[in-house]
Design a protein around this nucleic acid. Sequence first.
DNA 1: ACTTGAACATACTATCGAGTATGTTGTCAA
DNA 2: TTGACAACATACTCGATAGTATGTTCAAGT
Lengths: 219, 219
Amino acid sequence: MATAARSTKYRRQSDTDLSRMEIMEGAALCFESRGYSATSLDEVAARISSTKGRIYHHYASKAELFLDVYRTGMMMNFQAIEPILERDMPAIDRLKAMLKAHVMCVIRTKAFQNVVGQGVDMLRHGTMPANEHAELRQLAGLRDAYSDHFLKVLEDAMADGDIAYANIKIALNSVFMCINGPIVWFTPRKGQDEREIEAVADECVLYAIRLLGYTGDMP
Amino acid sequence: MATAARSTKYRRQSDTDLSRMEIMEGAALCFESRGYSATSLDEVAARISSTKGRIYHHYASKAELFLDVYRTGMMMNFQAIEPILERDMPAIDRLKAMLKAHVMCVIRTKAFQNVVGQGVDMLRHGTMPANEHAELRQLAGLRDAYSDHFLKVLEDAMADGDIAYANIKIALNSVFMCINGPIVWFTPRKGQDEREIEAVADECVLYAIRLLGYTGDMP
DNA sequence: ACTTGAACATACTATCGAGTATGTTGTCAA
DNA sequence: TTGACAACATACTCGATAGTATGTTCAAGT
């Protein structure tokens, strides 16, 4: 809806990124609701009122489409927290801001984040075909890098005495479970405006930092 | 390993429950690692050094096997917390005990709990074939009943002033995300004894009740 | 001891979906 | 303007797998 509808049947060469994004959005929704292997490319094509031919014109395989959705989901996450990383503020405040940004991003890009989650445990159990497996590992590296940003803020906030945890890995996992929760249980309501969504996100953030032993209150 | 190995090729009629349990354990592991639809019944059979014929002797379809694993997983959960429900103690203590029991159960029956999770969002998106869908709804009711037990303890503990939350649904979801976390991130180490597992569980419980605003310390 | 049926194993079918081969339409550069 | 190629659509192939049909072994009642 963002771009004017073309009257032509086929789209222009310069629009291939738009085409790929449309495919990815359809794929993300399908993968989210039925899972990677239960989703057929015919379904994905039907969702965007297209055909399998279009998908195979842009992607070499189903796995590559999946990986592109995965990568795009991770990019969205990075873009959400990157501006905060450079800000000069106490670790605890940076942590709060990062959590909030992450949850908002997660809610907005729910389908993509669900695919990211699927990708993570596809790697864990090695279901991907061998040729794409390498790329999957690379993307998992992205995920680790993202996680590390939170790990460092946690360490800093701990050093400042604002939070307290026993095992940082378990703590970080618990935090992520908490702030990724909306991927699983959040269902957007019709006519739900930005304020309501922010309220949900704020509550998630509150629980996440409380979990870390933070006893102050929220802004 | 609990029962002595039979020297006979086929097992006795009275052992059909044992046979079904063995099938379910293999299925749970397969479903956990590759997902429901990516798992073939030949894989499940191979995992228990058997054949598809045996599975179809006990189950009418792949979906029914899945549902039986689901049901069994839920039963394990109920059995874990049921004795605690009858105990006469302050709500906050009951909450702690229930959380601990749940996490321990979840870690011990990881594969089954993963299947429960898959079942939940299979229902949400209606992927199950229509005939088994009714049974899936029934099992979802079991899940809700289980969830309600925690919901009530939360309300009681809130009334006692021991915890504090804004939206109880979001709070409960966050708690479950936290205590179900091990299903996703826990990987059993070789030679890891009961004490170490309990330590992990205790930490999960700590984070879960901290999340609810509890500021006391743990036993 | 023999017969019936439960508990499997083996061999087959039918369908679905990933991938391919080929056809069609329109864009754009020269 | 035209021809080459990008952007698809259509029509197929082929392997994997859910489900079935049938064969085999043994346990237990009589």
